[in-house]
């Protein structure tokens, strides 16, 4: 503790929804005794302890690593995916970003491709399906040559790493007015297209993944850039441009065939 911590009271407006098929509603709670040194999710833990003691149903939300890397946590906080801090996941958000007596509105990701399961837990299996459509290199164990056989320029390796940093949380979809999954999809297409190992299948991969994305009910990308602004890992819009190039090449090649 840095000695700067305060104890505050917050007013919460939470989205409650019993399951996939029932309608949701907002529920209000006031929570006292919150340390500004606590994380946002620790504040919700504190709320749940209180709700259980009062014989009320605890609030369901997804989380696991609480280190900003697994991509399990979500939450729209006051209308912003992962809350007010730039490049910060909900689990890394701390209560020092809020003031005493603040009202905090907490909602799930809203997208038809991410149905609500309970309260603020949503179903993101559509992301796995996009990856299954082509987000890999088709190498089986046993095929690989020596790791240093193909040098890769540091620049490309670093760009690939930046794209690969995506945690698959879905904030991009939740923030997009069209609910497009283009930033997520293009990050993977880009990462693999930048590396010689992934280059072989780059065009085919791009067209298959984009097709899957459309089929799964995600919207089109019309360059709103809300996705980039909300991304907790700073995934860059240039990945989308790179994907469009690969997609375009795929089109040309398939016409040739």
């Amino acid at each position: 503790m840095s000695g700067k911590e305060k104890i505050i009271t917050v007013h919460l407006k939470l989205w409650r929804q019993k399951n996939r098929s029932t309608k949701g509603f907002f529920e209000e709670h006031t929570l006292e005794g919150v340390s500004t040194g606590s994380s946002f999710l620790e504040m919700l833990d504190q709320l749940n302890e209180k709700l259980i003691r009062e014989d009320k149903a605890p609030f369901a939300f997804d989380h696991d690593c609480r280190e900003g890397i697994c991509g399990m946590c979500s939450l729209m906080i006051n209308g912003q995916a992962h809350g007010p801090e730039r490049a910060t996941t909900t689990c890394q958000l701390h209560m020092r970003s809020f003031s005493d007596q603040d009202t905090i509105v907490i909602e799930p990701w809203r997208s038809s491709a991410f149905p609500v399961l309970k309260d603020c837990m949503v179903d993101r299996t559509s992301f796995d399906k996009v990856i299954a459509a082509g987000g890999f290199t088709s190498v089986n164990v046993g095929n690989a040559q020596d790791a240093n056989a193909l040098p890769i320029s540091k620049e490309n390796a670093d760009l690939a790493m930046d794209a690969a940093a995506c945690i698959g949380c879905g904030a991009c979809v939740a923030s997009c007015p069209n609910a497009s999954a283009m930033l997520f999809t293009s990050a993977k297409i880009s990462q693999l297209a930048l590396l010689p190992q992934g280059k072989v299948e780059a065009h085919k991969r791009a067209s298959k993944m984009v097709e899957a994305m459309d089929e799964l009910g995600f919207g089109n990308c019309s360059n709103h850039a809300e996705c980039e602004a909300s991304c907790p890992k700073d995934i860059n819009l240039s990945n989308i441009a790179r994907t469009n190039r690969e997609f375009f090449k795929a089109k040309i090649f398939s016409e040739k065939e």
């Binding site: 890999f136 020596d146 240093n148 540091k154 390796a157 690969a164 693999l192 590396l195 190992q197």
Partner: peptide, 21 residues
């Protein structure tokens, strides 16, 4: 063999300026 396999999968390990791991 683990490193070989991972590089083949597209794991973006850190590299030096010569492009080697």
């Amino acid at each position: 063999s683990i490193i070989d396999q991972c590089v083949a999968q597209g794991v973006p390990f850190a590299r030096d300026y010569g492009g080697y791991l």
